[in-house]
């Protein structure tokens, strides 16, 4: 079963004055997130990621389209007991301590006191905030707020976790901790839907991605499939004992040839002419060092897709 189903979602803001144009921030967006997977929602700032998430959680009303969470319509308030949510740059109640804060969100999720008391120390340890458990949130740094925000999203052990830019404001160690936490959630069978504009985060942990730009879904699928479909694989051939300028046949077939002393680097656009190039190198007396097929990256796809639309 799909944990999230979004069908032809559109959000248009009506203008304040009749002479102004309506602003469409989401246009015909469809996606599905499978149970137990990590789905990365990639897009520039202002692409419509947060708007989509807010519609999923009932904070915004869609102009058109259908949204289902864990088999229920998004308007169903009860289904939210099975969902955890962390907004972008979260800000919480200043005067609550970390423990009081988690207790409050636990109660809101309908947990009993005993379960809350059991979960709080576990979660505080998981987000490395055990020592700050009695500290008021107004004394927390941005990174600590982000981590306590993650803890509140997980206090009720939700099946689906929706995280809006969960790595923003974190230092490299903090980012790694969040990545590990997300991977840990998948290991427990949870579904994670998170947005980001940082491609490396997506590449490292996501099973599937969706690329959103200017309110439109440009690409959707497994990273490997997207890479295969959108980018040609180039090949790098490294050879010693030859001079690139002397290899007239190879020069015609290569995209680029670089010479570093005795070592020659030949870049081919694909594998089509690889055999011919290798034969030419052998004939010229070269010693083959390596042949590396170069795979395209998600970044290339992202830039290609978003710049095409722009």
């Amino acid at each position: 079963m799909d944990a999230i189903v979004v069908k032809r979602l559109t959000k248009t803001y009506k203008p304040l004055w009749p002479w102004e144009k309506p602003a469409t921030v989401l246009s015909d967006v469809s996606l599905s997130v499978r149970e137990g997977e990590i789905f990365g929602f990639l897009g520039h700032n202002g692409a419509g990621k947060t708007t989509t998430m807010k519609i999923l959680l009932g904070l915004l009303r869609a102009t058109n389209g259908q949204v289902e969470l864990l088999g229920s319509p998004a308007e169903n308030v009860a289904v939210r007991a099975r969902i955890g949510y962390l907004p972008e740059s979260p800000y919480f109640y200043d005067y609550l301590t970390a423990e009081e804060f988690l207790c409050f969100y636990g109660k809101l999720a309908g947990l009993d006191r005993e379960t809350i008391q059991k979960r709080i120390p576990q979660l505080l340890e998981r987000v490395s905030l055990t020592e700050a458990r009695h500290r008021q949130l107004r004394k927390f740094s941005k990174g600590m707020l982000q981590r306590i925000g993650l803890a509140q999203a997980l206090i009720h052990d939700p099946e689906l976790v929706i995280l809006d830019e969960p790595m923003s404001g974190l230092d490299p160690i903090g980012r790694k901790e969040v990545r590990d936490l997300i991977l840990g959630l998948r290991d427990q069978g949870k579904t994670v839907f998170f947005s980001t504009h940082i491609i490396s985060d997506v590449e490292m942990i996501c099973d599937r991605v969706g690329i959103l730009s200017r309110g439109k879904m440009l690409a959707l699928g497994r990273i490997e499939d997207l890479v295969d479909a959108h980018t040609a694989r180039s090949v790098e051939v490294v050879c010693d004992g030859v001079v690139g300028d002397d290899l007239h046949d190879v020069k015609k077939l290569a995209v680029r040839i670089l010479q570093r002393g005795e070592r020659c680097l030949i870049i081919l656009s694909g594998q089509d002419h690889l055999e011919k190039v290798l034969a030419a190198l052998r004939q010229a007396g070269g010693r083959l060092v390596s042949v590396i097929p170069h795979k395209g990256s998600l970044e290339e796809i992202f830039l290609e897709q978003t710049s095409r639309k722009a």
């Binding site: 807010k54 959680l57 009932g58 904070l59 308030v77 009860a78 289904v79 939210r80 007991a81 969902i83 949510y85 962390l86 907004p87 740059s89 979260p90 800000y91 919480f92 109640y93 969100y105 809101l108 999720a109 309908g110 925000g149 509140q152 999203a153």
Partner: peptide, 14 residues
């Protein structure tokens, strides 16, 4: 303004 309402309304509360 402080967006605390987001996390509260994302819970099973009307």
């Amino acid at each position: 303004e402080r967006r605390t309402v987001y996390t509260i309304l994302a819970r099973p509360i009307t």
